[in-house]
Amino acid sequence: MPRVSELFFKTAIVFLILGVAAGLQMAISGDHGAFPAHAHINLLGWVTSAIFGGYYALNPAKAERRIAVIHYGLYTVGIVIMLPALYWMLAAGHPEIEPVVAIGSLIVAAAVLIFGFVVFSSSETVRSATAAPAR
């Protein structure tokens, strides 16, 4: 499995654990005010990261490109900024943290655009972007 796939899958599992923990915290406390953050942790952290990992596992030539690692790093930084801030804003009632949520969201959006570029780039583009074969 390509390294970037493994990174995305491992990150996905971390967010699955955090999403389950957030859900349990809401259920135990009876306060479901942070349910949008819980949904974002599960959807962006767990599901989307796993899908990215699956895509790269199925497309190892694209996974070997440096842009795949940039995609991983940017996406992960974005969700690490956005999700805790969103949870804190909703669960603890801190609307002043919304600009941090916005910054994280913009970073995530940039990473998604990079992924779109990776998906729509042709195999020829992938080959030419990697090391040229020796003659």
Rank of each mutant, 00 (worst) to 15 (best):
Met1Val: 09
Arg3Pro: 00
Glu6Thr: 11
Leu7Tyr: 12
Phe9Ile: 05
Ile13Ser: 07
Val14Ala: 10
Val14Asp: 10
Phe15Lys: 08
Leu16Tyr: 10
Leu18Pro: 01
Gly19Arg: 00
Gly19Ile: 10
Gly19Asn: 01
Gly23Tyr: 11
Leu24Cys: 00
Met26Thr: 00
Ile28Gln: 14
Gly30Asp: 05
Gly30Leu: 01
Gly30Val: 06
Asp31Asn: 11
His32Ser: 07
Ala34Gly: 09
Phe35His: 12
His38Phe: 08
Ala39Val: 13
Ala39His: 02
His40Gly: 10
Asn42Lys: 08
Thr48His: 13
Ser49Pro: 12
Ile51Lys: 06
Gly54Arg: 04
Asn59Phe: 13
Asn59Tyr: 12
Ala61Met: 15
Ala61Cys: 09
Ala63Lys: 05
Ala63Trp: 04
Glu64Gln: 14
Arg65Leu: 10
Ile67Phe: 13
Tyr72Met: 04
Tyr72Gly: 05
Gly73Asn: 10
Gly73Pro: 02
Leu74Met: 15
Leu74Cys: 07
Thr76Phe: 12
Thr76Ala: 05
Val77Glu: 03
Val77Met: 07
Val77Thr: 14
Ile79Leu: 12
Ile79Glu: 06
Val80His: 06
Leu83Cys: 03
Pro84Val: 05
Pro84Arg: 08
Ala85Ser: 09
Leu86Ile: 06
Leu86Ser: 00
Leu86Ala: 06
Leu86Thr: 08
Tyr87Asn: 06
Trp88Arg: 07
Ala91His: 08
Gly93Asn: 05
His94Trp: 11
Glu96Phe: 04
Glu96Gly: 07
Glu98Leu: 08
Val100Cys: 01
Ala102Asp: 14
Ile103Cys: 07
Ile103Trp: 01
Ile103Arg: 03
Gly104Cys: 00
Leu106Val: 11
Ile107Met: 09
Ala109Leu: 15
Ala110Thr: 07
Ala110Trp: 02
Ala111Met: 10
Ala111Asn: 02
Val112Ile: 15
Ile114Leu: 08
Gly116Lys: 08
Val119Arg: 02
Phe120Pro: 04
Phe120Tyr: 10
Phe120Ile: 02
Ser122Thr: 15
Glu124Gly: 15
Val126Asn: 07
Ser128Arg: 11
Ala131Asn: 05
Ala131Ser: 13
Ala134Asn: 15
Arg135Leu: 14
